[in-house]
Amino acid sequence: MSESKKPRDASESLALDTDLGWAIRMVSAAFRRVATDSVADLPGGARGYLVLVALAGDREPPSQLALAKEVSLDRTVMTYLLDDLEAHNLVTRKPDPRDRRARQVLITDTGRARLAQVRESLGAAEARLLTDLDPTDTEHLRTLLARVAQTAQREVVAPDGTEC
């Protein structure tokens, strides 16, 4: 077993600053505090932001259900959120050409512009939180967190799409 994969020895320090749960909780709470203002004016706040980010990529527009799964939102919550985002002309929905019962969700030009504004504000908030890291460490942290988040998402949603 590699050094980095070895289980923790019981004799290792039990200080809070070595505990993963404590670190995740502290970072999560601090991020929520610094990020809240950045997304406050966006319909749905942080949830609305995640939907816009998920839609901003160059790919086939997802169905409402696929989008809800991607951003880990209940489909009913997603419907209300999309209603609000659509009322503000940030997204639009159209029938899915492959399935008349489904609706594809697309980000509008207004949504892209608003997302760019929010990302700039959020970037400044993130920079404050990551101020003690150099650019290489910041990029490494983002990469590692994205990998852990993908693992966490797989653990939350079972292969049949039901929540565990």
Rank of each mutant, 00 (worst) to 15 (best):
Leu50Ala: 13
Asp37Asn: 12
Ala30Thr: 03
Glu3Ile: 03
Phe31Lys: 03
Val39Thr: 09
Trp22Ser: 11
Thr36Leu: 09
Ser4Val: 04
Leu16Glu: 13
Leu20Tyr: 15
Glu12Tyr: 04
Gly21Val: 06
Pro7Thr: 04
Val39Leu: 02
Gly45Ala: 10
Asp37Ser: 13
Pro7Cys: 03
Arg8Thr: 07
Gly44Asn: 07
Ser28Ala: 07
Arg33Cys: 00
Ile24His: 06
Ser38Val: 01
Asp17Leu: 09
Lys6Ile: 04
Arg8Ser: 05
Arg33Leu: 05
Lys6Val: 10
Leu14Ile: 07
Leu42Asn: 04
Met26Gln: 15
Ala10Gly: 05
Ala10Trp: 12
Gly48Arg: 06
Ala29Ile: 05
Arg47Gln: 13
Asp9Val: 00
Lys6Asp: 08
Ser4Thr: 04
Ser2Asp: 11
Gly44Val: 07
Ala23Arg: 15
Leu50Asn: 06
Arg33Ser: 02
Gly48His: 09
Leu16Met: 12
Pro7Gln: 11
Asp9Leu: 04
Trp22Ile: 12
Ser11Phe: 00
Lys5Cys: 04
Glu12Arg: 02
Ala10Phe: 11
Ser13Tyr: 02
Gly21Glu: 13
Ser38Ala: 15
Lys5Val: 07
Asp19Met: 11
Leu16Ser: 11
Val27Gly: 00
Ser38Ile: 01
Glu3Ser: 11
Ser28Met: 02
Asp41Val: 09
Pro43Met: 09
Thr36Pro: 01
Gly21Tyr: 12
Ser2Thr: 13
Asp19Gln: 15
Ser4Tyr: 00
Ser2Cys: 02
Ser13Gly: 11
Thr18Ile: 09
Lys6Met: 14
Val39Ser: 00
Glu12Gln: 09
Lys6Glu: 14
Arg8Leu: 10
Ala35Asn: 08
Val27Met: 08
Tyr49Trp: 06
Leu20Gln: 15
Asp17Arg: 10
Arg25Cys: 07
Pro7Arg: 14
Asp19Leu: 12
Phe31Thr: 01
Glu12Ser: 05
Asp41Cys: 05
Arg33Met: 03
Asp41Phe: 11
Arg47Glu: 12
Ala10Lys: 09
Ser11Pro: 01
Gly48Leu: 07
Gly45Glu: 06
Tyr49Ser: 01
Ala35Thr: 08
Ala29Pro: 03
Arg33Thr: 12
Ser13Trp: 02
Ser38Cys: 09
Leu20Lys: 08
Asp19Pro: 09
Glu3Pro: 12
Leu42Arg: 06
Met26Thr: 12
Asp19Arg: 14
